[in-house]
Every structure is written in C-alpha cells, then in structure tokens.
Design a protein around this nucleic acid. Structure first.
Length: 288
DNA sequence: TCAGACCCTCACAG
DNA sequence: ACTGTGAGGGTCT
C-alpha cells in the first residue's frame, strides 16, 4: 500500500550522530528531525520511541531504498563484538554509542568524497548543496516547502563545464569530479561491477578515477558499497592511531596503515568510524 | 618515498 | 573593523 510515512524499529541507533558524522553530506537538522534526499526522494527522519520515523512528499510503495540507506537491519551489537577489546576501542564505542554506517549510492558517495579533500565537513556540505541545486533534478517536496534537488547523475555532471563546477566552490577538485563523471559516462569504469569484486580489486578500479586515491576509494567502498572491512585512513585516524595505539611515538603512516588492515577485524570500517568520531568528540591531542 | 602545488573558505591572531 | 596566516576527513606529479 502506498503511503507517505513509515516507521522502522531499531536498536542502538543514534540517528543524530550518524547523520552528522561526516559520511553523508546532504542532511539538515530541522525542528528536531532531519531532512534530506535519498535515491531521488525528499525525506524527513525523526527518532520516536526507539523507531526511525520517515515522511516523504510522494507516496511510496516499497521502502527498501530507505531501509538500505539507513541499514536498519544491521545488528550493531553483533558488529561491536567483533571489535578488538582494547581500552581505547571500548572507550570510543562507549562515547559514540549507536553510531552507524550508512549505505549511500556509490556515485553520490564517490563525487562527494572527491570534493572532500582538505575540506571541512561544513564546506563539503556547501559544495554538494550547490552542485545539486545547479545540476540536480527537482524532487517533490511537501506543499510550501523550500525546493529540493536530487544528486545530479554522472551524465549531468559530465555535461557541465569545469568552470560551472568551480562555481560550486569545488576549486581544484572540479577537474577531478568532471573527469570522473566523464569516465563513468564513457563506460570506462562500471560502478555496478564493483559490487561483486574483492575489496582490493574494487579499490584498484576506483583509484583509476581522477581525484580518487586510497583514502577516498576506501570511503566509497565503505559508505557506498558496504565493504565493512574498508578502513579509510585520514589525518584524524592517523592521529587517533598514533595517540591511542602507539603512545604518540613517531610512526610512519605506512606502518599505521598496515596495522589498521590487520588489527580491527572484519568490521574495521565500523571501528574506524567510531575512532574518527571519538577523536572529534574528545578533541585530538595536538599534532601527533 | 618525499615535497609542493592545487582552490578556496573559515577561524583565529594581531 | 581590517589584514595576515594557517590549515582543512587528499591527490597528483
């Protein structure tokens, strides 16, 4: 039956922390809830008595697109038992209880993270908002609501010029986003094909795209494809690993990367998100 | 493996 | 109120 609302029972789900954690960039806090666009649909989310309550602007018959995005069927408790049991990890879990990994559309995730390099979250959000407003299709919103836009397809982005992308405040990332969109448009890389690949193979494919190095590839693999063991290493994680596991000794990034690959287990990506968020909550010790 | 460049914006000094 | 400076969930050469 078509409807404009749905509810999902969840456990250990901190919607606020998850939507604000810097893995997705299109969510705005509005009147105690969140508004965003998922899979071309405007949606408002709000927690209520242990359930995620969703409202849309157009009738929905099948809510899988949102269940997938929110990953409501993931049993977090089970994930947490696979984390290493050291004190730092436990502290991070305790400090960020209910933090989740979302499952975004690969292309949106890819383009967003190409825009993320040496940017703060708030700036990334601004870039994405401009990109969507300029190149994305309008989507249905509740009567009287401000307009909303879908994330533009790679075809739409490929047709844009570099100058137009720079007007979205992308700076030196503009040619990367454009180049990536064009490669996808020409079929040089098939994003769907990555789903069946091993992590290392999928990563290799993504890193062929301009502006996509190891870190951004791992973000896309984790947040867009659900490779749970992908462990994006950025400056925050570098600091966290040094501070929490190497007593702030001088350790080269390559060594920390190798440590992370083996230490955090098959849900390493979740562990990474907890460490990342933990560092942001408690505040990092200076430098490293 | 190692810098430096890259675009642009904000925070924070002075 | 201004201008100067540094760094921000990296990548490329």
């Amino acid at each position: 039956m078509d409807s404009l609302s749905a509810e999902f029972a969840v456990e250990d789900y901190d919607l606020d922390a998850t939507l604000a954690s810097g893995q997705a960039f299109r969510w705005r806090r509005v009147e105690g809830g969140w508004e965003g666009v998922v899979a071309g649909r405007w949606v408002r989310l709000q927690m209520h008595q242990g359930r995620v309550c969703a409202q849309t602007a157009a009738p929905v018959s099948d809510w899988r697109w949102l269940q997938d995005f929110l990953q409501v069927e993931v049993n977090l408790a089970e994930v947490l038992t696979e984390f290493p049991s050291d004190a730092s990890m436990q502290a991070a879990v305790k400090a960020c209880h209910g933090l989740r990994i979302l499952r975004q559309e690969p292309w949106e995730c890819l383009a967003s993270f190409i825009c993320s390099s040496t940017k703060r979250i708030i700036q990334i959000e601004q870039i994405i908002a401009l990109l969507c407003a300029r190149f994305g299709d309008r989507v249905a919103v509740p009567a009287g609501h401000v307009p909303a836009h879908a994330f533009p397809s790679w075809g739409q982005v490929a047709k844009a010029g570099e100058a137009a992308l720079r007007e979205c405040k992308m700076g030196f990332r503009a040619p990367y986003v454009l180049g990536t969109a064009r490669m996808l448009d020409w079929g040089e890389i098939d994003l769907e094909a990555l789903r069946g690949m091993r992590l290392s193979e999928a990563r290799e494919q993504l890193m062929r795209l301009p502006g996509v190095g190891r870190k951004i590839a791992d973000c896309v693999l984790l947040f867009g494809y659900g490779f749970q063991e992908a462990f994006p290493v950025d400056v925050w994680i570098l600091r966290a690993l040094r501070q929490l596991y190497f007593s702030r000794r001088r350790v080269k990034p390559a060594r920390l990367l190798r440590f992370a690959e083996t230490y955090f287990g098959r849900y390493a990506g979740h562990a990474q998100q907890y460490l990342f968020h933990y560092m942001r909550v408690v505040g990092p010790a200076k430098k490293g």
